[in-house]
Amino acid sequence: MRNKITDNNMKLEFISKSNNEAFARISVAAFVSQLDPTIEELSDIKTAVSEAVTNSIVHGYEEKQGIVTIICKIHENEIFIQVSDNGKGIENIEMAKQPLYTTKPNLERSGMGFTIMESFMDELNIESILGIGTKVTMRKKIKQTEDDEDIPVTLEEALRG
């Protein structure tokens, strides 16, 4: 029988290099996996994390090196993810959230980052102060399946349990 995880949290810090993006989303996915999410839920979370981390690296720090921090919290069957940087901040959050809006169109940016975060997660909150940094907080409920809770998968497991 699986133990129910109620509360847990973790913190991740890495420098603003885009080759850390895969590391960031895979680490978050590994942490979230204790909630037993579906493949689709996990894919949504990985995409949202990737978008937030890209924003910090590309827009927050631009070419400069800085620290990106990710804090994850599990509360019951919900995951909270906060991605923050000490970069240049967002001038107009409402505008930045508009689909297809980008401040860097010449670099083949799609302007879909916040739109994807918003639609792949249940809730998105952006706090930003110019010259200080940006903090993106996301929340998603993992819909746990009840069927496999107490039923051992195999006979072997049943005997062991």
Binding site: S50, E51, T54, L107, E108, S110
Partner: peptide
């Protein structure tokens, strides 16, 4: 196995 919005820009480009 994974793609984020960077893929949109890449394909449109």
């Amino acid at each position: 196995t994974f793609m984020d919005s960077a893929g949109i820009g890449m394909i449109i480009g």
